[in-house]
Design a protein around this nucleic acid. Structure first.
Lengths: 233, 233
DNA sequence: GCATCGAAGTGGTCGGACCACCGCAGTGGT
DNA sequence: ACCACTGCGGTGGTCCGACCACTTCGATGC
């Protein structure tokens, strides 16, 4: 047994685990600056190349942030930072998994909308109304999509659960939604979606969680069913 | 305008996007082997070092898989592959976000259990029963935790939504659960959890989705409330 | 026909060099 | 005394070339 050489997996993988451990153990706090790549590599006894790969990996995971010329920092480690990669899943998913993703979104979105109905502030409610109005005032698909996203984002934020909001954000990532909704909207579903959005807004105004949950579930469910039918057909 | 030099972001970041695009465009199929690191670097006109960082990043995201001596391959791109990183979020979360994560889990777990009640096969149901019995037959916390995880994993799998199961898997990652449950179980909550697990199993046997949903929600909710109280206290 | 071995090819690691950028102390002016 | 500018040191970003560890598969020998 050589104490100095545990030797499990690649050195890069070990470096990733070490840095993660430093964070969980509190050695590295959110927002804190790390030692330089060169120092870190020396500390773990590996080359700078390998250490850079480890840092890059943690960067794409939203754990670290590298600022050119300044240094490497731990992110705030908030839900939004860490769940940014969730969008990758949505973007790389095709076929039946798109339905599964929408099913997950239906469950979470309906819950978030119900929570929002009970907690939303007048300011947030007004913002939701603005996006609803803007959505109905234009025919530009791009603009509609943007306000649609903002509409649901504002509601998710009002639910008071940042983690849930971050997951929903990933499930509604721009490329994902654009792919699915292109076909959906082309079939003249504008009127239906407008009606559904109005129903959600009405439930929020009435502060009726049950109605809000039902309206949101129906809204996502419509798209879900359409997609399911298109795949099996 | 120089067509050959778009120059946005780091070359590594661009390489990551290029490879992701190749997959979404169908140039690279799941399971397929990629060109060698050296060839890929040459194709994109970057150094092997930068290309390696890009590959490493996509590897930790569960998109690519590098086999030493053999080559680089696209994973099957199934939910489990891509959502493995979800466990990182759970492991790095502390304080209030642990409650948020449990809240998300409560929503998804209750839905998954309800779905399972309607679809579970006799074989799967028997397996769930085995884990329940094994969980009650030992006093070793490690073993209890293992069977507890398997119990819920089996139910999530029976729900028929692989994406939902993968997310729940991340929300129940070993280190995460161990951290939260250590304190919970130490307060003599064994009896309560056994009762709750039995209730879930009973609802599955009765094929009663509503009862299953309620039992699962109550089960996760108990831990959620305990954690919330411990944080505010 | 089959087990063995070895060479070619692949990812993994290393060290060094240079570039692009940021931050700040020092400088010069007003 | 204050401020804008400048220069330098330190940092991450990129590249190169070499070598190691491992897999693969065909050639070799039995």
């Amino acid at each position: 047994m050589d104490e100095t050489a545990p030797q499990k997996g690649t050195v890069t993988q070990r470096a990733i685990e070490r840095i993660k451990a430093m964070i969980t153990e509190g050695v590295l706090e959110p927002g804190q600056r790390l030692p330089t790549e060169r120092d870190l590599a020396a500390q773990l006894g590996i080359s700078r190349s390998s250490m850079r790969e480890a840092i890059r990996a943690l960067t794409v995971l939203g754990v670290l942030e590298a600022r050119h010329g300044s240094g490497i920092y731990v992110t705030r480690l908030e839900a939004g930072d860490l769940l940014e990669t969730f969008g990758v899943v949505a973007d790389l998913s095709r076929g039946p998994r798109l339905v599964e993703l929408l099913q997950v979104r239906r469950v979470l979105e309906s819950t978030a909308t119900a929570l929002a109905a009970a907690r939303i502030t007048p300011e947030q409610l007004a913002e939701v109304g603005n996006h609803l109005a803007a959505m109905n005032a234009t025919d530009d698909p791009e603009e509609i999509l943007a306000h649609d996203l903002a509409f649901h984002r504002e509601i998710a934020a009002a639910a008071g659960n940042g983690t849930m909001a971050a997951i929903l954000e990933g499930l509604s990532s721009r490329t994902f939604r654009a792919r699915v909704w292109r076909g959906y909207q082309e079939e003249g579903a504008f009127a239906r979606t407008r009606r559904e959005h109005a129903a959600i807004h009405r439930a929020l105004v009435a502060r009726d969680p049950e109605a809000a949950r039902a309206a949101a579930a129906a809204h996502v469910g419509e798209v879900e069913e359409w997609l399911r039918a298109r795949l099996t057909g």
